[in-house]
Design a protein around this nucleic acid. Structure first.
Lengths: 246, 246
DNA sequence: CGCAGTTTTGATTCATCTCAATTTGTGTGG
DNA sequence: CCACACAAATTGAGATGAATCAAAACTGCG
């Protein structure tokens, strides 16, 4: 029988957003002490479930919170008035969505679930408040934002200097590496997005993406069955990246 | 004769990095009270002058500080092992450099002065310290980072979906708008970078950039004499952007 | 004044896009 | 459980925008 000052386990875990979460080390609580994570628990209010295809937020929505992906897979995209659009990123469990909205207090892109997903709502004013108290949280949040900038630079590099097959190889290697960090197989995974979405992200048409997949398969680099990808020759894909254009 | 508690003006202005700076409203001190700006003054230690062509930092350098441009013009670029490189941005007075280094504690790109320049060094640990005390500083810094992310998304859009002339038009309009915000003419300005650097930023070859300039001139949209640009038809440039590809 | 770096312009090539047809896969309702 | 409709993916042929290669003109710096 527990002592009166011991809170029954299931009662805490109901509230505990972060302290019981297995993504802790990939997400915002990284590097915090137990006590500090407990403070984050109080901040991370609601969870929200999204069905595949549902918007988490839309361009133009007022910015109020960041979102940590607990389960699922998202894309962000920008839609121009003339109908052109571009996928700006794909996000998976442990990654933070919504930082685009801080600067203007309005979201500048759309965030859409590519599979049934669940996210944790992190109200931004409260995150800033807690960041002023917890140094490690502040610093880690800055790192998360900075890494997003560096990631974007990588995409600029890809779009600005790489040819179609190099882009796709870089994309696959990046996904593989992120799946690995989440405990999934580096060689085998399921694409959650269509060829068109991949193309939009990589600045290519869907036919070009499809042709590149076929070519990789012919060359024995990967095997493709629809959205199921198996990487057969990791080194071969990497080699594609380090070759001169032309 | 001044009262004893009045500090002579030239003594304060010697130390005052931000409070006497005319870029205050474009830069980090935006939105701070006088007292708060005075606290920033203590933080912003050294100024540093750079000659044209000099590096402010290089990829691989340990990250220690952010830099605010006081005078001058910079580019940032990434160099891949295989020799490919990409200009990731051009920065002018009032803008903040170095945020790429926060995430990994190492700079991930090179920052190079495109003209003789002067920057203010903002040691990062001290900026984080002061951000924990000054809410407005914390919030504004978050906005600055977020805007960098949104800017990068714009470049991704440009590289992913626009044709050569659209990219160049977008580039010129962006420069024009930023010069305007700094009190310079929106119609007339001097490019600080070469055609090759513009091309690298826009994902084009220098010949393509040159041809697009010539075409704009033929069509009466701008006049070009080497690096001197005069925008003759702002609306015409804007119209170029809102047209479907193909 | 001469030379190196930059820019312009032309001719040709090539990667990717476009258009089109077909195949494959997925979800729904009878 | 199967059939149907619709969405996604593959593949081919031809068009096209930008790259490449090449040469000439211009600029500015020592």
């Amino acid at each position: 029988m527990p002592a009166p000052n011991v809170i029954p386990l299931n009662l805490t875990s109901l509230k505990a957003a972060c302290s019981q979460c297995n993504l802790r080390e990939l997400c915002l609580p990284y590097g915090l002490t137990e006590d500090e994570v407990a403070q984050l628990d109080n901040l991370v209010g609601a969870r929200r479930k999204l069905k595949r295809g549902q918007h988490l937020y839309r361009a133009g929505d007022p910015f109020e919170a960041l979102y940590a992906i607990k389960i699922g897979f998202f894309k962000t995209d920008i839609l121009l008035e003339d109908g052109r659009d571009q996928v700006t990123g794909f996000q998976m469990a442990g990654e933070i969505l919504g930082m685009d909205g801080i600067g203007t207090e309005v979201h500048t892109c759309n965030s859409i679930a590519l599979e049934d997903s669940e996210i944790c709502v992190i109200p931004f004013p409260q995150l800033e408040h807690l960041s002023r108290e917890i140094r490690a949280l502040q610093h880690h949040f800055h790192k998360v934002m900075s890494r997003e900038i560096v990631r974007d630079h990588g995409v600029m590099m890809l779009l600005g200097t790489m040819r179609a097959e190099e882009r796709l190889a870089a994309f696959l290697l990046n996904l593989s590496q992120r799946f690995t960090a989440r405990g999934y197989s580096p060689q085998e995974f399921h694409l959650r997005m269509t060829r068109e979405e991949i193309g939009s992200y990589l600045g290519l048409k869907l036919e070009t993406v499809s042709r590149a997949f076929s070519r990789f398969q012919e060359e024995g680099l990967i095997s493709v069955h629809q959205k199921h990808i198996r990487i057969l020759d990791n080194a071969g894909l990497k080699k594609l990246l380090s070759h001169q254009p032309g």
